[in-house]
Amino acid sequence: MHRILITGSQREVLPKLRVLAQAEGREVLMAQDAASAMRLVQLLSLDVLVLSGGFGETTDRWLMVEALRQNPDLKLLRRLGPIDEFAMELTKALYV
């Protein structure tokens, strides 16, 4: 889990998730708009894709498919509920 991309349009949420994901040796990228997320997914092989907030079903699905195509071992996390619940989910996924 070296390279993590966190996507979403909720600016107050992303930094919080970034802090959670930040650890030595990890590269944590953030994308606040769909175009940036798509560009990063195309350019980089990710270890973890964190979909927070979402850009709509079509774009989110494209991001997941493209990221999985580049790395079949990709770990995927998608926020569906409140931020605090998701933060715990993310912490578990990354650290437990």
Binding site: M30, A31, Q32, D33, A35, S36, R39, L40, L43, L44
Partner: peptide, 19 residues
């Protein structure tokens, strides 16, 4: 600016990893 090896790019406005 980002250098991805095969792509060297300069963004005037926030894009991809530049914000």
């Amino acid at each position: 600016h980002a250098n991805h090896g095969w792509l060297k790019t300069w963004h005037t406005f926030s894009f991809a990893g530049y914000y």
